[in-house]
Design a protein around this nucleic acid. Structure first.
Lengths: 222, 222
DNA sequence: TCATTACGATACGCTACGTTTCGTAATCGA
DNA sequence: TCGATTACGAAACGTAGCGTATCGTAATGA
């Protein structure tokens, strides 16, 4: 995993053909200590409540050391988020689109309800005022999650389970969008029951009639 | 429309049985000037780039005057948003759920693509760190927009156009969630075409078979 | 031993916050 | 017309966090 998206002063990680850096080497514990402190404080105070001085104190390092390694707060947060709290979402293949999606959506809801959910919300807030954070978050989080669901949908397409006119990207938006919406607005509870109802509602009518899986009120779970 | 959700020092607006306030009255232009300056600067710099000093300068008033009337930045922004830029979304009743929703969703997309969209994104970011802003925005913006679509859906339910097992709230999430998602993440274009495809995708399969409106690839728009 | 780099402490200038003080202006009632 | 009262703008204040610079010390390699 990357350690620093933008090299601060000198190289943060050595490239392939690196010179052996003379002088005192960087303390190996420091890096992780900073990222863990960042992750913890992010959960306690959110992105705006997060301060470099706070990270330094919690990690037991000097503020200077942090600025030597990262150019600004957003970059630290990105690294902390993607190194400490990364994906363990399902990549199932049960042969049924509905079942695969249910597993993925339930897993995503579970993550959103844990500490990671708060960080995701915090980062999406940060996106609105930090374009480099926005780009990184889009690529490394949103697109990564989406790719998992996209694979499921495209497998289903390949099986002929899905109506041929269904556009994968719109379907993915219809599935993921409401989860992010509830995460950010807390308009209504974000739980497994919601995920299941959403999947069934969105999927109803999209499957080919020859599909063995029904998605009406009487079909499936319960 | 409300002028100040939390009275700053003294009464901002007089209640019903108000005493005549002795002393110099507040300048009547000032209030609106501040709100308009706030709205403009919000569009230029966003919520985090917005400064009280900046508002004061733009509005041609003293910083003190602003603090006399609002307790903090979030409250000014809320007032500015809800007094200057409010709703003109469609409340159509064509007799067809699909047509009604299309009009509403197109209108919402249009708003999101204008200056109001940036402010909405900005406020949703602010929600993540300001609970009073969150509550106000949920009630006054999200719920207001949602109520418009809810009315359309419930009319459709009453007509028997919609399958009886369809839960209105989940359907509303499936429709609105993706719009907010694209607004916030800019993952993909947020335009009328997307709104139309989303409506058709979500609606397909939800209508009763007796409904005269088809939502398959060959039906409706195009 | 010496050059080189990392480290932490400290201090700095900067910006914006939200508050306080103060002299002035506007309104009302006596 | 005067005094009480309130609003106003200007200025200064203390606080906080940013990101930078300086400096003495520590760790490594040559």
């Amino acid at each position: 995993m990357m350690s620093s998206r933008i090299k601060a002063k000198k190289q943060a990680t050595l490239a392939e053909g690196e010179e052996k850096p003379s002088g005192r080497p960087r303390c190996p514990h420091t890096h992780l200590a900073i990222l863990e402190a960042t992750r913890d404080l992010l959960l306690e105070a959110g992105f705006v409540g997060l301060t470099i001085e706070g990270i330094a104190e919690r990690a037991g390092v000097g503020k200077t050391t942090i600025y030597r390694r990262w150019p600004d707060k957003a970059n630290i947060v990105m690294d902390a988020f993607f190194t400490c709290a990364n994906p363990k979402l399902a990549f199932p293949d049960t042969g049924s689109l509905r079942e695969d999606l249910l597993r993925q959506m339930r897993a995503l809801v579970r993550e959103f309800n844990g500490p990671l959910g708060q960080t995701v919300a915090t980062l999406m807030a940060g996106m609105q005022s930090d374009s480099s954070l926005a780009e990184a978050f889009r690529q490394q989080w949103i697109e990564a999650r989406r790719a998992e669901s996209r694979a499921v949908v495209e497998r289903s397409h390949a099986r002929g389970e899905l109506r041929a006119d269904i556009e994968t990207e719109v379907l993915l938006d219809a599935l993921h969008g409401p989860l992010y919406f509830r995460l950010l607005t807390q308009y209504a509870p974000l739980n497994a029951a919601f995920a299941e109802r959403l999947v069934d509602l969105v999927l109803s009518g999209l499957l080919t009639t020859t599909s063995p899986i029904k998605t009406t009120k009487t079909g499936g779970r319960k």
